[in-house]
Amino acid sequence: MPHHSFIRLTKTRAAAALLAGGLAFSALAHADDKVIVLDSGEAKLTLVDEASRRVVGTEPTGKEPHHLMITPDGQSLIVADSVSNDLLFVDPHSGKVQRRVEGIEDPYQLGFSPDHKWFVTAGLRLDRVDVYHYDGHDVTLAKRIPLAKTPSHITFASDNRTAFVTLQDTGEVAAIDLPTQTVLWKLRVGSTPAGLWMTPGDRYLLVGMTGEDDVAVVDWHARQVVKKIQTGRGAHNFRNLDDGRHVAVSNRVDSTISILDYTTLTKVADITGLRPGPDDMELSADKRYLWVTFRFAKHVGIIDLTTRKLVDTIAVGRSPHGIFFANRAPVYAPNPD
């Protein structure tokens, strides 16, 4: 089985902290911090200066980089090159390439379990989910699990043993038992499920229904859809707003972003006037600005959450998808990025 050495840094950076109370990793601010935007159409990442909102550079990646993920130690940002079948490790502050790890088949989406023991990739193209052991430095393949059809997004339960994956073309959510690498169950949720987000306390699984105009609320303990929250056509991905109450949902067909109250499971607002195809989102450390990639407009947008207006757009590559900056508001565990 393949055995990959992850980056071993000799230099100690400003330490990033694992935040207690159910919060996942958040790195500290750094002088070189850049917003990193993946361009899945042109095999590159674009670096944007967060303060001036100007493009300051690009770096080549592998083919079709769609999603990215910070390593648990915060020392590397993993860019998943889905067609090159590899992972590119870059400096999360500057975007500079650190190392390439090959032999990771079709890593469209990726995630670490909350305890960082497991590393999971979803192969959208190859209809497969691969589960790896992670020891803090290396990944070792545990098992490749055939999982039709088109597994796309991943999240986890806090029990550190259950991963959830959306299956776009079959309209299902699959639950995977990580220790045994077996599919526990599948649940039909609707048309083209994409982004997944676990509410605090592991109560509900929210599913962005890209083929519908809603978010499915799944009681995963009971294995049933208990509610659908109308958002906008093409509901796709999530980003928590770190206020203990709200999560943003991008709607790729209506080109809006809906704000959900996850404590009441209701929609509280829509952000309109956006460019076409809002997709992945990232939140500034002060929780004021929501950055979003416009998949079908070659731009990144910045939304001021105090006014809920698009205040700036930045031209990037042909197909902007994943977005990250190290100095950001935290992501709630057990959800990965």
Binding site: S40, G41, T150, Q168, D169, S191, T192, T210, G211, G234, R252, V253, G277, R295, F296, S319
Partner: peptide, 12 residues
């Protein structure tokens, strides 16, 4: 027509 699975590839 429920073809959103082809969304990204078709755009490209």
């Amino acid at each position: 027509f429920g073809l959103m699975g082809y969304d990204e590839d078709t755009y490209d």
